[in-house]
Amino acid sequence: MPTQELSYRDALRMALVEEIDRDQNVFVMGEDIGRYQGTFRVTEGLFQKYNVEQNDWRIIDTPIVEPGFTGIAIGAAMTGLRPVVEMMTMSFSILALDQIINHAAKIHYMTGGQSTVPMVIRGPGGAAKQLSAQHSHSLEGWYAHCPGLKVVAPATPQDAYSMFKQAVRDDNPVIFTENPGLYTIKGEVTTGPDVLQPFGKAQVLREGKDLSLVAYSRMVHVCLEVADRLAEVGISAEVVDVRSLLPLDTETIYQSVRKTNRAIVVYEDWKSGGFGAEIASRISEDCFDDLDAPVGRVGGLNVPMPYSRVLELECIPNADDVMAAVRKLG
């Protein structure tokens, strides 16, 4: 299968184009995604390609009304269409929470399996750069709290590609969150019509024996940096990329912890009550006898995201914060 170097953003776009081409039921809707080509340029060129050159109504610019267009996508999905809804930032999905939680997530259940909602809600989640308090939320933990949704947070261009294709083909509503800091990172990507990454499978991105660093999305890269720094001082850290929050692959996490006997969970979301707390709790509950130290947690500061770059960087966990947590483990 062909392999090429792609940015996270280009990998996403390539997967999106392939899925639109593969299935007439797939369409994209969101704010500024068509003529303006997307605030983060994930949909660059698509309006021209489909709506203009092919005269096919596949890329749909919406008014700035998240509840309304999310609801329209849900209704369309109930008839078997496969909408990909872009949230300009995941922070705006808060407006559509009623549609996502009260409607999309419940439909298969409330209809007793008569209907499915094959839709993807994707967009940047987490802090970009000085977008301040209303545009920087990490909401994946909120969504992963809700049965009926699937929630994924890929960290690499390969997973952006193969998990996105998987998401489009999934018959359930999928929240696909992309940390804005990831769009420009590059990596080798194996591509192909059926290169899919099934959900519910964590991956070990770096093997180690002394300590497990468990993370998802951009924090995976922070953990990889920490593992490099620890290697310099003779500590061998394993990095587990959770990548799928719901369903959650606890087994891969537990296997790592059983080997290393120490774990730190790293997440950008507010530390208190974030999804990392769920992971930490499970490790404590199910791997208690394997642990040589309490499970560590590094999360975002429990404050609204400030505008000042200095203060913003204070909020987002970095390698130093994780190193401090490692030292605390003893």
Partner: peptide, 26 residues
């Protein structure tokens, strides 16, 4: 009763109205 084209059946006041538009969209 989806087979008979009846799409519910919703408990949030007003919340189903975009779904109705979505059916028409489809």
């Amino acid at each position: 009763d989806i087979e008979n084209c009846f799409f519910g059946g919703w408990g949030i006041v007003g919340g189903h109205t975009p779904l109705g538009a979505g059916l028409a969209f489809a």
